[in-house]
Simulated assay, not measured.
Amino acid sequence: MATKTQAKIPVVDLSNLDLKPGTNTWFSARKDVCRALEECGCFVVEISNKIPSELHNTTFSTFGKLFEFPTETKMKFTSERPFHGYFSSPTYERLVIDNATFTDVTQEFTNIFWPNGNHHVRESTDSYVKLMAELDKMVTKMVFENYGVGDYYDSHMESTTHSFGIIKYKEPQKTGNNSGLGIHTDKHFTTVIHQNRVKGLLIKTEDGEWIDFDPSPSSFIFMAGDGLQVWSNDRIKACIHRVLLAENLETRYSLGLFSHNNKTICAPEELVDEEHPLHYKPINLRDYAQEQNRLVAYQKELSLKVYCGV
């Protein structure tokens, strides 16, 4: 009897972030990226030599110090946007900066914790945001081109902003709960995740299998969010994932870059035909996130089909 092969998260090497559109290497990478997103809703990005292991370790150690500040200090970091600012739950804490690609915004963020400034934290934040935003823009451009609507890319990015999240997961031996994050999809357009060496992220395949993400200093994971699922008219499904933590391990930290299109999202007319009838009504991601935020207290996960399905 043949044994079932363990599913793996697709891996795409994008070490050369200066890939030029229109070149053979660009077309090859674009093909790999879009196949992975269609099959799995995500893929592992290898970016060798972009982040030395020393910088990786120092950065996570520095970001970890943010959570050592008194709760009243962390509570000063607020935002009107759902899931932004400071938030604490029984299993994790997070700090999410809106419009994080602007250096004055990250400066204001660090000044909350260090009123006289902290160049190291600000520069580390800016460096990671810049790298992850470049990655997000490249992959998004590839997706738009792949479906023959590359002309829409510039207008899409003009209405897109990026948030940067720093998340600390509480040790299971202290909380009595190994669930860091429940099963969900991200309520953004796309997500880029980078983390320390502590495992915990699990990706669900179409077959219902859960796959571990094994992190490294040079690896990121790119995920499709609900916004991309609506835009692609179900060609790409949002990545279903969760975080489960093992006991007796060091603290897990992760960094996330979340892209938000701040206008109404709908599938381009070129992506609607007899083979692909329209699946969703137009959606505003901020309103969608606000509704999900309302349901958090009830421990409910908002469904795209329920919220805006045709």
Results as ranks from 00 to 15, higher is better:
residue 280 Y to I: 00
residue 212 D to N: 15
residue 198 V to H: 07
residue 53 S to V: 10
residue 302 L to W: 11
residue 32 D to N: 04
residue 272 V to M: 00
residue 55 L to F: 08
residue 299 Q to R: 13
residue 99 N to M: 12
residue 26 W to A: 03
residue 53 S to R: 09
residue 130 K to R: 15
residue 54 E to Q: 13
residue 40 C to D: 07
residue 234 D to Q: 02
residue 190 T to E: 09
residue 309 G to D: 06
residue 234 D to N: 10
residue 37 L to M: 07
residue 147 Y to L: 08
residue 47 I to M: 06
residue 156 H to I: 04
residue 227 G to R: 00
residue 153 Y to V: 10
residue 23 T to L: 01
residue 165 G to L: 08
residue 218 S to G: 03
residue 247 E to F: 10
residue 19 L to S: 02
residue 180 G to Y: 05
residue 275 E to V: 00
residue 94 R to M: 12
residue 270 E to G: 06
residue 293 N to C: 12
residue 290 Q to D: 15
residue 22 G to R: 01
residue 55 L to E: 09
residue 51 I to W: 05
residue 265 I to E: 04
residue 84 H to G: 14
residue 229 Q to H: 09
residue 123 E to W: 06
residue 209 E to S: 06
residue 18 D to S: 06
residue 192 V to R: 09
residue 177 N to T: 12
residue 266 C to N: 10
residue 61 S to E: 15
residue 79 S to K: 07
residue 193 I to Y: 03
residue 274 E to P: 06
residue 184 H to N: 07
residue 176 G to E: 08
residue 152 Y to C: 04
residue 194 H to P: 00
residue 253 Y to R: 03
residue 104 D to C: 11
residue 204 K to I: 09
residue 69 F to Y: 06
residue 50 K to F: 10
residue 70 P to C: 08
residue 302 L to T: 01
residue 272 V to W: 02
residue 11 V to K: 05
residue 91 T to P: 04
residue 49 N to H: 09
residue 201 L to E: 08
residue 222 F to N: 05
residue 127 S to W: 10
residue 110 T to A: 04
residue 176 G to T: 12
residue 62 T to F: 10
residue 179 S to C: 11
residue 272 V to I: 11
residue 287 D to W: 08
residue 157 M to A: 00
residue 202 L to P: 01
residue 51 I to T: 12
residue 257 L to A: 02
residue 44 V to D: 07
residue 161 T to W: 01
residue 103 T to A: 14
residue 300 K to Y: 11
residue 214 D to Y: 13
residue 73 T to N: 11
residue 29 A to I: 05
residue 169 Y to F: 15
residue 166 I to V: 12
residue 300 K to F: 11
residue 100 A to H: 09
residue 195 Q to C: 12
residue 20 K to R: 06
residue 167 I to S: 14
residue 113 F to Y: 15
residue 227 G to D: 06
residue 151 D to Y: 10
residue 76 K to M: 14
residue 88 S to R: 13
residue 71 T to Y: 10
residue 7 A to K: 03
residue 91 T to R: 08
residue 16 N to E: 04
residue 112 I to V: 15
residue 210 W to V: 03
residue 5 T to A: 01
residue 51 I to D: 10
residue 288 Y to H: 10
residue 205 T to P: 01
residue 20 K to Q: 14
residue 111 N to M: 13
residue 200 G to C: 09
residue 74 K to W: 07
residue 65 K to L: 13
residue 44 V to E: 15
residue 230 V to N: 08
residue 274 E to F: 12
residue 224 A to H: 03
residue 63 F to S: 15
residue 225 G to F: 13
residue 41 G to A: 01
residue 285 L to P: 01
residue 193 I to Q: 15
residue 91 T to A: 09
residue 67 F to I: 14
residue 230 V to L: 05
residue 40 C to A: 02
residue 287 D to P: 00
residue 185 T to L: 07
residue 2 A to F: 05
residue 28 S to R: 07
residue 8 K to T: 04
residue 226 D to S: 06
residue 10 P to A: 05
residue 111 N to Q: 15
residue 288 Y to F: 15
residue 125 T to H: 11
residue 218 S to T: 14
residue 306 V to K: 12
residue 248 N to M: 11
residue 259 S to V: 14
residue 50 K to I: 04
residue 110 T to D: 11
residue 162 H to E: 13
residue 297 A to S: 15
residue 273 D to Y: 13
residue 297 A to I: 08
residue 263 K to H: 09
residue 98 D to H: 10
residue 25 T to F: 04
residue 119 H to E: 15
residue 304 L to F: 07
residue 201 L to S: 08
